[in-house]
């Protein structure tokens, strides 16, 4: 709701400014001052649009075979994420309670390969909003990228009770981690495989099913699909809270 209000405030401000400009008022649109929070939202939205642009380019990259075009696309994608970092940094400087912006900053850093900065950004997002599922999931994926498996498991458990969808996404990331042939002892990989199977079984049984469930939802039972106030439409560009990982 807070985010909706922020976005609405910007829209209302711009409409008022446009109206004044059209009426021949001497004030220009650029004279209308946005609050630091509104400015932060604007940067955040631009960062999300850059992330979305990167995703589109990634889709093209996946279908491309020409080495020259691949190189060009990779450069373009990197540019999008670098600019997204700039926007989210601006957003967090203007609004130091903006947990969504810290989380999106972490995502952009992670896509650029800077796991240290990514973790710091996720930690900050979660210091502000400890139950924010997106940051928990993203941080879990960052931990996987660093082979910090026990911490990634804790991220999964934090999601398990509160956001079945994101917990399922993180469990998929664990599966992808196993398939990637990680540079860890074979017995560790085997242990993680067993853990994935166990958690998938429990999720399926108890109705938090990433792999099905038992129909509780159709009986009206609460199955923990999302945190109230976090995953509902937030009025921010790209619906960052519900975007999932890529």
């Amino acid at each position: 709701m807070r985010q909706i209000m922020r976005a609405t405030a910007i829209a209302v401000g711009l409409l008022a400014a446009a109206g004044a400009f059209a009426a021949g008022n001497s004030k220009k649109i650029t004279d209308v001052e946005a609050s630091p929070e509104q400015e932060a939202t604007r940067h955040f939205n631009q960062g999300i649009q850059l992330r979305d642009a990167a995703w589109k380019a990634e889709e093209k990259l996946a279908a491309e075979s020409d080495p020259k075009k691949i190189e060009k696309l990779e450069k373009k994608i990197r540019g999008f994420y670098e600019r997204a970092v700039e926007e989210q940094l601006s957003a967090t400087k203007l609004n130091r309670r903006f947990h969504e912006a810290y989380s999106s900053l972490g995502y952009a850093y992670r896509k650029l390969g800077d796991y240290t900065a990514a973790l710091k950004a996720y930690d900050t997002a979660l210091a502000l909003e400890p139950d924010y599922p997106e940051a928990i999931e993203y941080r879990g994926q960052a931990y996987l990228g660093l082979n910090r498996i026990d911490e990634a498991k804790k991220a999964y458990m934090a999601l398990y009770g509160n956001d079945a969808e994101k917990a399922g996404m993180l469990l998929d990331a664990f599966r992808a981690w196993v398939q990637s042939g990680p540079d860890v002892p074979a017995d560790k990989v085997k242990e993680v495989e067993g853990w994935i199977a166990d958690r998938a079984k429990i999720a399926g049984m108890t109705g938090r099913g990433h792999d099905g469930g038992n129909g509780w939802a159709s009986k009206g039972h609460e199955v923990g699909n999302g945190l109230e106030g976090h995953t509902e439409g937030n009025g921010l560009a790209g619906d960052a809270a519900g975007s999932g990982d890529r």
Binding site: Y81, L144, G145, A176, R246
Partner: peptide, 24 residues
């Protein structure tokens, strides 16, 4: 695992596309 190796981790997505974890 190095960061370069981490880049090989393929992540699932809602649309089925599997982009790299990090940009080269």
């Amino acid at each position: 695992m190095s960061l370069a190796a981490a880049a090989l981790i393929a992540l699932s997505s809602a649309c089925g596309h599997v982009p790299p974890e990090t940009v080269p």
